Simulated assay, not measured.
Amino acid sequence: MKRILTMLVLAAAALFAPAAMADISTFRSTMSGPSEVPPNPSPGYGVAEIVIDDVAHTMTMMIPFNDLLGGTTAAHIHCCVGTPLDPLGVAAPATETPTLSGFPLGVTSGVYNVTMNLLDPTTYSTAFLTANGGSAASAEAAFIAGILGNTAYLNIHTNLYPGGEIRGYLVNVAVIPEPSQWMMLSLGLFATGLAVRRARRK
């Protein structure tokens, strides 16, 4: 009986371990005017997805945004200050300045999609690079630590709100097992239950 239970625990651990030890982390930033510092009444919003691969040293950003009151002038990831639960404070841009390369400017709605090399010094603002060791590798470590620590936010600046019209902290997306993983676990539990039942009958 103990042997069967031990095997079940090990099987479950093996099933979920790859997700926990993944080298790819996904973050979401839900941006709005009320989330800015100071808050503003903009109806603008966006739900961005940021995927960091710390083995390939890449960051892929998908940033849709809509209904801004002003025309876009810049967008950055800022690091590192505050948290989603205590969002006071303004951090300098961690990513390139004056804006992310290729970000659509002068518009109120749009989509930005890019993959950046985290080991390229031009990915970071000069100030962030200098403040974090002067090399892309040290800047990457500080940048990822800031994001994992919930102290980085994404915002979009416009001509009406030069300090930022919409803003949202980067929050780690919880790893949810695939349906196939749940099915495998359920089958394993069922098979274990049958084995335990047969062992008791003997």
Rank of each mutant, 00 (worst) to 15 (best):
S135G: 04
P38S: 00
D54T: 14
M61I: 10
E96C: 11
A75M: 12
T30A: 14
T151H: 04
T26R: 15
G188I: 02
G89W: 01
Y161G: 00
R28H: 07
I63C: 03
V9A: 10
E178H: 14
R201C: 06
P39N: 09
P177L: 05
D23S: 10
M59Q: 14
I176F: 14
A127F: 00
Y112S: 02
V81M: 12
P38G: 05
C80L: 02
N66R: 14
V114K: 09
M7V: 01
T58R: 15
S135T: 12
L69G: 05
A191N: 15
G146N: 07
D53N: 15
R200P: 03
I50A: 00
S125M: 13
A22L: 00
T123R: 04
M116W: 07
E140Y: 11
Y112I: 00
R167W: 11
V175R: 13
A94R: 06
D53V: 07
L85F: 01
I166K: 02
S138L: 10
I4S: 02
A174I: 06
P162I: 04
G46Y: 09
L154K: 08
L154C: 07
M21G: 04
L100C: 07
T95R: 07
M62S: 12
V47N: 14
N172T: 15
M116H: 08
L118N: 12
S25H: 10
V107Q: 10
T95F: 02
L100I: 05
T72Q: 03
A14V: 03
G164M: 00
L154D: 05
V47A: 10
L5Q: 09
N40A: 03
Y169S: 08
T6M: 00
D67I: 00
S29C: 01
T72C: 06
F143S: 06
P87L: 07
I147F: 07
Y161W: 08
G168K: 07
L88T: 12
L160I: 04
P98T: 09
A92V: 14
I4T: 09
G164Y: 04
S186K: 12
M184T: 11
T60K: 08
L10Q: 00
E165V: 00
M184A: 15
N66G: 06
S109Y: 10
F16V: 06
V55E: 09
M59S: 11
E96W: 12
M62A: 03
G46N: 12
